[in-house]
Simulated scan of single mutants.
Amino acid sequence: MQQWLNEDLGRGDLSAAALVGCSGEAHWLAKQAGVFCGGSLAKTIFHCLDPSLKIQLLVNDGDAITAGQRVLDIEGAATAMVAAERTALNLAMRLSGIATATAALVKQLEGTGVRLADTRKTSPGLRIFEKYASRCGGAYNHRVGLDDAAMLKENHLAWAGGIQNAIAAIRTNAPWPARVIVEAETAEEAKAAIAAGADAILLDEFSVAELQQLVPQLRSLALKRGSPVLLEASGINPEQIRAYASSGIDLISSSAACTRSSWLDLSMRFHTNKG
């Protein structure tokens, strides 16, 4: 976080000279409704510059907020509050935007039993925070990194010589608890993955109608082999997410909340007194 502050401060805040001796109070105001996220991170950013700042979070990460609502109060030296303001707000607005967009998708899945998961399409350096925002919005985290599970995609399968060879190599070399997920672009690939012993199938860019026909077939194949398989839909149109849930899948993964969301508008208002 200090690196983020240094990016903005450079060789020092040139406006600080106008604030020497000033102290007082400020608050964060939500300018639109949404789901708040990033309060504890913002608090840490402010304290990186001045540990003596008094900060009170008025809402918790994951709470729904309304336009005009105060979400944070802060008191202390104006120089530190002004210098850290933009970095703290930028992070909270970005994360709140993701949490808000995620919550909207999760709401559409209510009552279906289908879970929403995020993806690895995150901003470099911010993955852990953006995935945290996804959790605050009600989604589950998919792989945080490549070491969480083995996911075999088109290139893996082509270079390994097919699904059977790829899965066999992973089973031989990976720790025994590792799960193997196969991304399937056709019904034939999905069926072959189950036959080869995959733990989960990511059904990529299938239509709702195609999934409604394919899912029962895959369930039957998994039953015959004697072990369950998790079925995940990806590459979907977020506007049709509830229709996809009707196909009988277990999970929908989508990057939309992270890659297409807007920042939630927050601002900081000062009440500064001359010390």
Rank of each mutant, 00 (worst) to 15 (best):
I181K: 11
N155L: 04
N173C: 07
A178Y: 13
R143T: 10
H156V: 05
K153W: 04
A149T: 00
D148Q: 02
E154D: 14
A160V: 09
V144A: 13
G161V: 06
L152E: 04
I167M: 01
I170H: 03
P175V: 00
I181H: 13
R143A: 09
N155Q: 02
N155W: 03
Y140E: 14
L146M: 09
A166M: 00
A174W: 12
V182Y: 12
R179G: 05
T172F: 15
A166D: 07
L152A: 02
P177M: 11
M151T: 01
V180T: 11
A158D: 10
W159Q: 15
T172S: 15
E183V: 00
R143G: 06
E183M: 03
I163S: 06
E185L: 09
E185A: 10
K153G: 05
V182F: 12
A150I: 06
N141K: 04
I167W: 03
A158G: 03
A168N: 11
P177I: 09
L152P: 13
L146E: 06
A150Q: 03
N141M: 08
R143F: 09
I163C: 08
N165T: 14
H156E: 06
N141H: 05
A174M: 09
L152V: 04
A139S: 15
P175K: 10
A169P: 07
R171K: 12
R179M: 08
A178Q: 14
I163A: 07
D147M: 07
W159T: 15
G145T: 02
L146G: 07
D147Y: 10
A160S: 15
A169S: 12
Y140R: 09
G161E: 05
G162H: 02
H142N: 07
A169Y: 09
T172Y: 14
E154L: 01
P177F: 12
Q164G: 08
Q164D: 14
W159K: 14
N155I: 03
R143K: 10
P177W: 12
A168H: 14
L146N: 07
H142S: 04
I181V: 12
